[in-house]
Amino acid sequence: YNFTDCDFEKIRKKYQEVIYQALNKYMNGVKSTEFNNYIYCEDPPDCLAKIDLITFYPTHGCTTLAKEIFAVRTNATLTLQCPGYSGTQINNTQAKKKRKKRQVTTNKCLEQVSHLMELWRRFSRIS
């Protein structure tokens, strides 16, 4: 999916209103600068493409991000603000069920979410 036609301003506002706190809550005090690697995105579409990839596509060692609250909100925001974006079919009740049955957050997932935070920050600075 090409994120060029998304409404970046609205997505940025949604990030600052509801997604940022959920990401922060997930990190639970672990600072994203503690992970000694970084991720770059050039412009808003590139940032959103990488955010979409990390949030919704499982990787080795971290397969569960798509059900997290920040992912549900990201999915809802992109579906609303990006014409033609289909997104993943995760609804709020699944996310709530997940919150009750809290799995141990793997270090790999913390690293992935720290990357997400860097991408979202970069996206908000340039859009």
Binding site: Y15, Q16, Y20, K31, S32, T33, M117, W120, R121, S124, R125
Partner: peptide, 9 residues
């Protein structure tokens, strides 16, 4: 700076 855009450092 806004923390959501620049972080806390």
């Amino acid at each position: 700076t806004l923390e959501s855009s620049y972080g806390s450092d």
